[in-house]
Design a protein around this nucleic acid. Structure first.
Lengths: 216, 216
DNA sequence: GAGGGAATGTGAAACAAGTCACGACTTCTT
DNA sequence: AAGAAGTCGTGACTTGTTTCACATTCCCTC
């Protein structure tokens, strides 16, 4: 499953879901063809970068014509395993967790949040956004075959819960807590740190003023 | 303000808030010195990278000793303008927006969410997490001197609201909607796309299996 | 106050990503 | 039917970032 594809740069891989979504939109709009230039304007990625990204998968387009939307869509659907749904659990049904549960990930996605976990008895037993919420004590018992977890607990709990997740067989963690968790090598963690994002935007504004640059 | 500092690589700049937070923690714990190796374990960044990052600011440490926590903390506080608070507005008080309002950004940060805006009459007039919520129609009237906006509206509204923000003088937008908004060159936009983050984590899990790698 | 051990700061190398620019091919127009 | 216009795919280049590896320096103990 991961042989030829192993050669795709990580930066490219991160853009694939974005491309997929826009190509899907174009398809829904009934568009038949699209050029790298048009796509570039929509997703705000340089057109040469888009062509380069696509080229890692072979020749998807036609010179002088562009890309066939339907072909591209089928290709991306296959590449992103759109048909095989990855089961996800969400730990910590606070404000942020609730936002996720109400987010309709299935619309464009290959992922489904199967269940949530929380320590508060108010939330346990309810359904939020169609997702049942279990008590955190049942984590190991209920997790079953979900391979990915979204971590939206208080940061003081993060390491502890992460260890339980790992023991329960989770392979990927999307960590929204400020804590940098330690996990074994076979587990992949992506950190999204809201405070850092905001702070670094502010830093960039102060120290890297834009003006004539980034025209495109 | 942005002369010497202009030379700092963007990758480094993005890590600064992270460093700051951990150094602050160490200080609170009463730790007096720290090595790049220790720091590396805490923030999950290679120790050579940490030393290189710090070196852009001059020689902050001592060979054979490490870094003095208090000195480092003072230095970072100054560098990140910790004392000068940047005013932030939040547009769209849905689940995600509410999560932000309840997040205590002031704890470690140089940013403060001053107000929220929403179209729903249920929310307007209330305070959430100590932040007053105004009606979206009052956007231009109330925004005053906030320079950064967090955009947590439905994606169909994103472009429209973004244009109003720009007209009102906003300089930075943290965009949590899946829409890629178009703004003038002088406005900086950082996209955080929750669906893309989840989907790309899944893609990495399937195609870039870890195992012996990433030891450190 | 001398020697051992520890950890920095940094040249140089390696790696990764983005961009340029153009040949080749396709479609469209007249 | 031929020329013009458009657009891909990609070699070469540029830029940006990380990592290696080690001379240098400083602390600490004896």
């Amino acid at each position: 499953m991961n042989n030829e594809q192993n050669k795709i740069p990580q930066a490219t891989a991160k853009r694939l879901p974005l491309y997929y979504r826009f190509i899907n939109n174009l398809h829904l709009q009934g568009k038949l063809r699209v050029s790298s230039k048009e796509l570039s304007e929509a997703v705000k990625v340089d057109s040469a970068t888009i062509r380069r990204d696509f080229s890692y998968f072979g020749a998807l387009g036609k010179k002088g014509y562009g890309y066939n939307v339907e072909y591209l869509l089928k290709f991306f659907r296959k590449t992103l395993d759109q048909d095989e749904v990855t089961k996800v659990s969400l730990i910590g049904v606070g404000n942020l967790g609730t936002a996720f549960l109400n987010y309709n990930f299935m619309k464009n996605n290959n992922t489904k949040i199967e269940m949530g976990f929380d320590a508060s008895t108010e939330k346990v037993g309810k359904e939020i956004g169609g997702v049942p919420v279990h008590h955190i004590d049942e984590l190991e018992a209920k997790l079953e075959d979900t391979t990915v977890a979204i971590l939206t607990v208080p940061s003081s709990e993060a390491q502890n819960i992460a260890e339980r997740l790992v023991k329960a067989g989770i392979l990927g963690i999307l960590n929204f807590t400020p804590a940098r968790i330690t996990v074994p090598d076979h587990v992949r963690v992506h950190h999204i740190d809201l405070a850092v994002e905001l702070q670094s935007l502010v830093y960039f504004l102060k120290h890297y003023p834009l003006d004539e640059e980034e025209t495109e």
